[in-house]
Computed example of a mutant assay.
Amino acid sequence: MRVAIITGGSSGIGQSAAVQLAQHGTGVILTFQGNEAGALDTVATIEKRGGTAVALPLDVGRSETFPAFRDSVVAALRDTWQRDSFDFLVNNAGAGHMALFEDTTEEDFDRLARVLLKGPYFLTQTLLPLMVDGGAIVNTTSSSARIVGLEPGYSAYGSMKGGLVVLTRYMAKEFSKRGIRVNSVSPGVTRTRIGDNAFERFPDLIPGIAARTALGRIGEPDDVGMAIAMLLGEESRWITAQDIEVSGGYDL
């Protein structure tokens, strides 16, 4: 059985990606920070459908914890799948923050940098020796890093996600010698827990966003989770170094 590691698998896009991959026969190690109940719900959903999953705690903003996390991954691979390697990595865990350029503090900037760019960089570096040759990686970026997704208030967030798009291409170049493909997905506006469950708190925002979207609605986690599963699958074996917008045609 192939095994995927998905960061931020307790809700939203990460949870959907975990379930989608499990439905394709892939074992899943998913991570959570704070939302243990959500992570256990993801595991229960996968197991109910006949799959196998393990939830591990991880703060992607604390790179000093990555060696210990790697040890936990090794133990989970050995105990659950009798393996010493894994096949897929999804760098999905993130943090949201909105502030106009002049109101963004160094603390805000540094926190986003640790979680959205430094975290995926050094977590991938830490786990790469455990990944099989011919594996695949997907990084979750954002439409806020694309021309069509520019909105006031996301200068720091979008810059980090833009950095992750560039990092995706460098990973694809350097890892190609091992046959490892690396792509990213750039979700548009998606109904997740980001921004303190913003869409639950401000449902009046939804009609305006839907009106700006070619397909007439906001995104759902499964819209992006399915795209991630597709990019990791055999059908995408000739795709690497790409950033795929998954937005339903936002601002098209």
Rank of each mutant, 00 (worst) to 15 (best):
M1V: 12
V3G: 02
I5R: 02
T7D: 06
G12S: 12
I13R: 04
G14P: 09
G14K: 01
S16V: 04
S16F: 02
A17L: 05
V19Y: 03
L21K: 02
Q23F: 00
T26F: 01
I29E: 02
I29D: 00
L30E: 04
T31C: 06
Q33L: 13
G34L: 05
N35F: 01
N35D: 14
G38E: 03
D41S: 14
E47I: 07
K48W: 00
K48D: 12
G50K: 03
A53T: 01
V54A: 09
L58I: 10
D59V: 11
G61C: 04
G61N: 08
R62D: 13
R62V: 13
S63P: 10
E64L: 02
R70W: 01
R70E: 12
S72N: 13
A75P: 00
L77A: 02
D79M: 00
D79S: 13
D79C: 00
D79Q: 13
T80H: 12
F86K: 03
F88R: 01
V90P: 10
V90D: 01
N92V: 06
A93I: 09
H97W: 10
M98I: 12
M98A: 14
A99E: 11
E102I: 07
E102N: 07
D103W: 01
F109W: 15
R111G: 01
L112I: 08
A113C: 03
R114N: 12
R114Y: 05
V115Q: 04
K118W: 00
K118I: 13
G119A: 05
Y121S: 11
L123F: 05
L123A: 05
Q125A: 13
L127C: 08
V132A: 11
I137H: 05
I137E: 06
T140L: 15
S142Q: 11
A145C: 09
A145S: 15
R146D: 14
I147L: 15
G149M: 11
G149E: 10
P152L: 07
A156C: 10
G158M: 08
G162T: 09
G163L: 10
V165T: 15
T168P: 12
T168N: 05
Y170R: 14
Y170C: 14
A172H: 10
A172Q: 08
E174Q: 13
E174Y: 13
K177C: 10
K177V: 14
R178A: 07
G179L: 02
V182T: 13
S184V: 11
S184N: 09
V185N: 06
S186I: 06
S186Q: 11
P187Y: 09
G188I: 03
V189L: 12
T190E: 09
R193P: 08
F199W: 10
P203R: 01
P203Y: 08
L205G: 02
L205M: 14
I206W: 04
G208M: 01
G208Q: 09
I209W: 14
R212K: 15
G216Q: 03
R217A: 09
E220M: 06
P221Q: 05
G225T: 06
A227R: 07
A227E: 09
A229P: 04
L231F: 07
L232R: 09
L232Y: 06
E234V: 11
E235Y: 06
E235C: 07
L252T: 15
L252N: 09
